[in-house]
């Protein structure tokens, strides 16, 4: 029986099949690889950060639909934001994946909210957070 509550909703499949931000970025000021061995997801996140603002970003690499869509949605959200604002969104996203974010917080994530059901899929959490964790690690460096 087909279960229509499957979390592969249109937002997710659309970002997977037609990612806006999947391309190299010549102007990147920071790039970092992120790997999720469980699915073999392997992405490189590229950001151009100027005066505390993420002016541009992209990713390359391969992986499952969840990792790809999540990275693309993340870039939609953080490009044009200050690093501080982007970190705030990252915190909400990670809370959402643990099933702990409020509805108002999830609102802030816009299309990122389409991934909220992953909190019920322990096997796929790592895919959903790959882009965000890679972002977190870039900031640490």
């Amino acid at each position: 029986m087909e279960n229509n509550r499957s979390f592969y909703n249109e937002i997710l499949t659309d970002h997977n099949l037609h990612p806006m931000h999947k391309h190299p970025l010549d102007t990147a000021t920071a790039s970092l690889e992120g790997v999720n061995p469980s699915c073999g997801d392997d992405i490189v996140l590229n950001l151009n950060i100027k005066d505390g603002v993420i002016t541009d970003g992209s990713f390359t690499g391969d992986g499952c639909a969840i990792s790809q869509a999540s990275a693309d949605i993340m870039l939609d959200l953080i490009i044009g934001k200050t690093v501080e604002e982007a970190e705030h969104l990252k915190d909400i996203f990670l809370k959402m994946i643990q099933g702990k974010a409020t509805d108002e917080e999830i609102e802030e994530l816009e299309e990122g909210g389409a991934l909220s059901d992953i909190s019920h899929m322990p096997a796929r959490v790592k895919c959903a957070v790959l882009g965000w964790h890679t972002f977190e690690n870039i900031l640490k460096e």
Partner: peptide, 22 residues
Amino acid sequence: GVHPHDVSSILDADGIAVRAGH
């Protein structure tokens, strides 16, 4: 065009247990 883990997640949503990976 579909990653094996996505295949198995869709099958899982339909109550079917298969393995995906290496």
